[in-house]
Design a protein around this nucleic acid. Structure first.
Lengths: 346, 346
DNA sequence: TTGTAGGCGTTATCAG
DNA sequence: CTGATAACGCCTACAA
């Protein structure tokens, strides 16, 4: 097994000094055309590539961005990663991804691991457990050490960091307004308990939409579930029970899964979609596209979030050192994708 | 902005030498209990963590595994990553993920980037373009430099590397056999052209299953499409046309998307599933679970693949240097998940 | 028990 | 034009 080629080896081979080789390869004018060519030819022939680790140590920069997310099987995070990846590539950064599995300890471990030289900065979405524990010392520690942090999606206030968020309230409002425009007047919502920020904001958007049409908010048409990323049997049962015999003509749900299950339940109840009941959901994946009927969604543009987050981070990394840092919060717009589960707007 | 704490800083602060600090922190018996305690207390207080980059440079090991995959929005790869992540964590390795976007140049770039010190070894699934180009110099170069490689899913022969594969032939055979067991006798398959290995092998499994039931393979019941990871309008049209008026009682497809579209088309044709026609597909995601009706699938266990791939790589990394390397090919079993799209086996 | 020196691979500075 | 030296942060053999 061959050892990797280094400046030292080249130097020895060509009988020059290490610094001559280094300079030649970086096209320094200090080196004579002759030796430069000779060295470059040799390096090329044997496929010399500088060692990144050594460069990182020297430059105290890794050109690597760390992403820490709760889970990767969630389609939303997947798209965000892709966005970060793109932007990072465009700026010659690497991306290193760590999963917290929604576990506080793991999130802390991951951050400490990456903070020890592997990474120049972080993009992260907090683990559920972290939110509950309300313990963010790992964030502040990283930031204290001079590592910029960009939070996205699941964020906390009070941390000196940029943030990238989906405009949940506005998105929900748009979705419900679409239902209203197509003629729905008795619209139910399937959301989460208020301690989940996302659910709370989307519920708020739902209420605002109704109010703008002067429709009274009916508590009986609001179902708040504990889950957010999944929909187990118990959760399905609640949805079924909730929809059973309700006099409604529209349903808005805060994720795809709830919508799919609602769609099934309504179908079982003999309702036709969208003739009897229309459905709109917040979405981050393909499920709504391939469901039967396919679902009209408020789409989240995770890729754009990722790009924006990476952009913010890179700006901080490459920007000049400033006395007083400023932090921005970006809202990524949602957009409505009309499919089969809603009627046409007249 | 505080600078990160280093051995040097601690040494200066406590007025001892750097090596004393280093030794104390590593609990060397050389250092007196006294100074050891003092140094450790200080380090703990100020939260000293050794710099990974420096360690990597020193040890010529990064304890980082590179994964290179065509795309991340594909659910299958997502699960594989999770598996790799798990195993890596258990062995104290980092994981760094790069996307090739099925682009040859990008795959080469990524590998070169990571091969220059960022990574101790690779786990990769080849880009489609790489397969077509039949150019694997980036693999052999990395391997020549002493970086072990584990290929998975989309692999080539002739490269000195371990491989982890889904047993496509066996999986397809199992799926089709299930259809046969439930009483289906006229089974169509929607697959890919033979140049896609995965499609070819699954087609083979289909044929074997039929033959084991002494059923003649009917070319008219085989649809070969160009796509594999997607299903565009043209592709949907072909599926519709293929199924139109065919006298069949079962459909096997090599991915979820084809199955969902087939299901829709059959439904449109007035067929009832599974009463008239049963459906089984190879799958890697949730689509089949949430489809209406939900689809019986041959499940791929991506996570297990990831774990196995990581295990193989770590074995190579930590195993003793041997004169003659041996390479293994692991097959990950598939399993049948029965859902609504097939009848019960009598 | 503590400290010094050298090296991992690279680059920048300065001397020849 | 070329080379020696120091430094990035850490570890370790060896010297004191």
């Amino acid at each position: 097994m061959k050892r990797k080629l280094t400046l030292k080896l080249i130097a020895k081979e060509l009988d020059v000094s290490i610094s001559t080789v280094s300079k030649a390869l970086r096209d320094s004018a200090e080196i004579s055309e002759d030796t430069r060519q000779k060295i470059k030819a040799f390096a090329k022939l044997y496929n010399y590539k500088p060692n990144n680790i050594a460069l990182s140590l020297k430059n105290r920069k890794t050109r690597t961005i760390g992403i820490i997310i709760p889970q990767i099987v969630h389609h939303f995070f997947t798209t965000v990663i892709r966005g970060v990846e793109q932007m990072a590539r465009e700026h010659n950064y690497n991306v290193i991804i760590c999963l917290s599995n929604n576990d506080f300890e793991k999130e802390v471990m991951n951050m400490e691991l990456l903070a020890n030289g592997s990474t120049d900065g972080f993009i992260l979405s907090l683990a559920k457990e972290t939110m509950q524990k309300n313990d963010f010392h790992h964030l502040t520690e990283a930031i204290d050490q001079g590592m910029p942090v960009v939070q996205f999606d699941r964020v906390v206030d009070g941390i000196p960091s940029d943030k990238v968020l989906v405009d949940d309230r506005e998105g929900a409002k748009m979705g419900v307004t679409h239902l209203l425009k197509t003629g729905c007047r008795k619209i139910a919502i399937i959301t989460t308990e208020d301690y989940v920020t996302v659910g709370k904001l989307r519920t708020k958007g739902y209420i605002e939409a109704l109010e703008s049409y002067d429709i009274r908010v009916d508590k009986d048409l609001i179902l708040k579930l504990d889950n957010i990323d999944s929909c187990d049997d118990q959760c399905i049962a609640k949805i079924k029970h909730f929809l059973k015999g309700k006099d409604i003509d529209g349903v808005f749900t805060i994720n795809e899964l709830f919508a799919v299950e609602a769609s099934k339940a309504l179908h079982t109840n003999g309702k036709s979609i969208p003739a009897d009941v229309s459905i709109v959901c917040f979405s981050d994946g393909d499920l709504s596209k391939y469901a039967t009927p396919s679902l009209t969604t408020v789409s989240q543009h995770g890729e754009q979030m990722g790009r924006r987050a990476a952009e913010l981070l890179i700006n901080k990394l490459e920007g000049p050192e400033v006395e007083v840092e400023e932090y921005t919060t970006s809202y990524i717009n949602t957009s409505l994708i009309e499919r089969e589960s809603t009627r046409k707007v007249k």
